[in-house]
């Protein structure tokens, strides 16, 4: 029996790259999304993967969503907390709603989702949780106090849960991507994009598949001794 993997925010961008990589490696994959039905429908048609719609920032919606997945596909063995959002503003202009939205979707979601699948993983004595953090969570970034706080918080969450999961055969790790060539980057002015590319010794953006590859490495059966780790995938842009 193939393991069942769930990828949040998995119908586009990095999440879609991860979902494709897992599918190609032979995992059963289901994908969660929240906002864009049209994108989700075309992703489902193109990939043949089941898509489920709920807001990962909402605890009760996660409970209902996971219940639905469990009924249709069985318990989740592998959880990829990838869903994220941005609401950039300079701190002096950032309002409370922007702060809360980003913390809720990027960090609360990790609690909401992990808590729903953790019991099944304990019962199975096996589990893989991979949280998609960010280079900006490690290095800080102007205009992103909310995003950086959420992503850095995710790195702390990873290390705490890794300690708890160890005796149950559950590993918990973080992948911290740098700037990856997704639909989000294509909205960025070329001048800024060039500056970003220049900061990487490899002189290009990452690809969605390269993040997928890192996730594959961590969810593998043989990766059982890797836990609480942060794997940076950023073209050498930030080293520490």
């Amino acid at each position: 029996m193939s393991r069942l993997a769930l990828v949040t925010g998995g119908t586009r961008g990095i999440g879609a790259g991860i979902a494709r990589a897992l599918k190609d490696a032979g995992y059963n994959v289901v994908v969660n999304y929240h906002s864009d039905d049209a994108v989700a429908d075309s992703f489902a048609a193109e990939s043949g993967l089941a898509v489920f719609k709920w807001d990962v920032g909402d605890f009760d919606a996660c409970r209902a969503g996971i219940e639905e997945v469990r009924t249709a596909h069985g318990p989740v063995d592998i959880l990829i907390n990838n869903a994220g959002t941005v609401a950039d503003a300079r701190f002096e202009n950032m309002d409370e709603a922007q702060w809360h939205r980003v913390i809720r979707v990027n960090l609360d979601s990790v609690f909401n989702m992990s808590q729903q699948v953790y019991g099944d993983m304990m019962a199975a004595k096996w589990g893989r949780i991979v949280n998609i953090g960010s280079m900006n969570g490690q290095a800080g970034q102007m205009n992103q106090v909310n995003y950086v706080a959420a992503k850095a918080g995710m790195h702390g969450f990873t290390k705490a849960l890794a300690q708890e999961g160890a005796k149950h055969g559950i590993t918990v790790n973080t992948v911290a991507p740098g700037y990856v060539d997704t639909y989000l980057m294509r909205e960025m002015p070329e001048r800024i994009l060039n500056k970003i590319v220049d900061k990487s010794p490899i002189h290009r953006l990452g690809t969605e598949d390269e993040v997928g590859h890192a996730v594959l490495y961590l969810v593998d059966e043989k990766a059982a001794w890797t836990t609480g780790a942060t794997l940076t995938v950023n073209g050498g842009t930030h080293m520490y």
Partner: peptide, 8 residues
């Protein structure tokens, strides 16, 4: 999570 969030 909260404390490492503070560091970010």
């Amino acid at each position: 999570a909260a404390k490492s969030g503070i560091h970010g």
